[in-house]
Design a protein around this nucleic acid. Structure first.
Lengths: 233, 233
DNA sequence: GCCGAGAAAAAGTCAGACTTATTTGGCACA
DNA sequence: TGTGCCAAATAAGTCTGACTTTTTCTCGGC
């Protein structure tokens, strides 16, 4: 499930990363490696490795004679899956969820259009299978089953788009959908209209109708954005 | 200009990163920290820090008793600015440039639509200024001046969208535009139609016309994609 | 008030010893 | 012949302590 946690430095990151992304240390805050090493009861080497990772995510900057300073939020590598996970686990989870949903609304329609052109027969079959799975789990509070097929559905489209940048957003979409199901809305069965849209989208892609696929995905995205507006207008 | 290079481990990354992203070590290749440390003539601590950074980019995976194995390309953090820079400097630069341009074509229209709603008066003024700068440098092989204003123009829109995920793509757009001007096409003056579109886009955003702004940006994106097709159909 | 030398502070680097997890391979036993 | 277990080998992981380097602050002289 979670990527890090392997090794001592991973253990440190698991608490330091979320703390920084949660804004616990305001931008400009200065940390010292030695002090951190003591606090986490690890050697300086381990601490240095952790700091290097944070630095590569642009969360902090390490300078001689100064220490490890926290960078302003605007400079963070917000596309780093680890950073996304930390932020989704923290206080500004709603804000982050909205940002990511807007991102999805921009990416997925274009990806679906490309998928209609490039999807292999196998991918089309998989897509139909996912859509059927969504239908089968759309009634009777079978949210986990629905979520599973929903994630797979969107992942197949992103992969089928043939664009590696799109494909790598599969994990992000998975996080957003999971978060929505488990923590935010969706206490009852999913919107039947959304289910129908997914079925029709699978069909449009199978038929190679790029324009239709793009339009249908825009409708799905509209629905997702609307859901957020209901929750936090 | 380049982010890394600070410290010994940065020096190591500057040659190891590009080598890996260039596919010099095929996925599954095994490296050993000790051997690398010898090769780069640095201590193991420094080498370990470099490996940690590569690991956080999902370029490699470090496992006990096995070594540092190169991950398949599909798992790389392709949104990491450092990784993007390394790949743009390498052999699959054209492929990467195409992926990023398609990404732009998905993001920027939506960002422009949001910018029309959220842009401050100051941002609108800046946008108009950039558009004028583009016009002023559109004739007479003043490519550098044109590029400068083009980058600033798109960066303002992404920032004005109010979405942090969009805003952080400013650097990516800058890389793409720079790459296009300096290495790929554009030996002569920029397409006059594109210049006009930028001017009209600035006006649409100032007027708060989201639909028009989105449509105009789509036209600009179409142009950029078309340019690539001319070069490598 | 300004400037330069020196002190101080913190990260950076290195070397070496030790620990731990994982894999491999051989040996015994079924 | 196949299977399962134990022991050895291996490479990453960890810790410690000493040393270097860079940058900033301070203090004294002008």
């Amino acid at each position: 499930m979670s990527t890090s946690g392997r090794g001592l430095h991973g253990r440190v990151l698991e608490t330091l990363g979320p703390a920084i992304t949660a804004g616990e240390y305001p931008p400009g805050s200065v940390l010292r490696t030695d002090e951190l090493a003591q606090r986490f009861d690890v050697s300086r080497s381990v601490m240095r490795e952790a700091v290097r990772v944070l630095e590569s995510m642009h969360l902090v900057e390490s300078r001689r004679r100064v220490g490890v300073t926290v960078r302003p939020k605007a400079e963070w590598n917000v596309y780093d899956p680890q950073v996304i996970r930390w932020r989704l686990a923290g206080a500004d989870r709603p804000h982050q969820l909205r940002s990511l949903t807007v991102l999805r609304s921009a990416i997925e329609p274009v990806a679906a259009g490309l998928a209609a052109k490039h999807a292999t027969a196998e991918q089309c079959a998989e897509l139909t299978e996912c859509a059927l799975g969504m239908v089968a789990n759309s009634k009777g509070h079978r949210l986990e089953g629905y979520l599973f097929h929903d994630i797979a559905f969107h992942r197949v489209i992103l992969n089928a788009s043939g664009n590696e940048m799109f494909a790598r957003l599969g994990d992000v979409v998975a996080e957003v959908l999971t978060g929505r199901t488990r923590h935010e809305v969706m206490f009852e069965d999913p919107d039947p209209a959304a289910v129908t849209l997914h079925v029709r989208l699978a069909e449009a892609i199978r038929a190679g109708d790029a324009g239709h696929a793009e339009a249908l995905t825009r409708e799905i995205a509209e629905g997702a954005l609307h859901e957020l507006d209901i929750l936090a207008p």
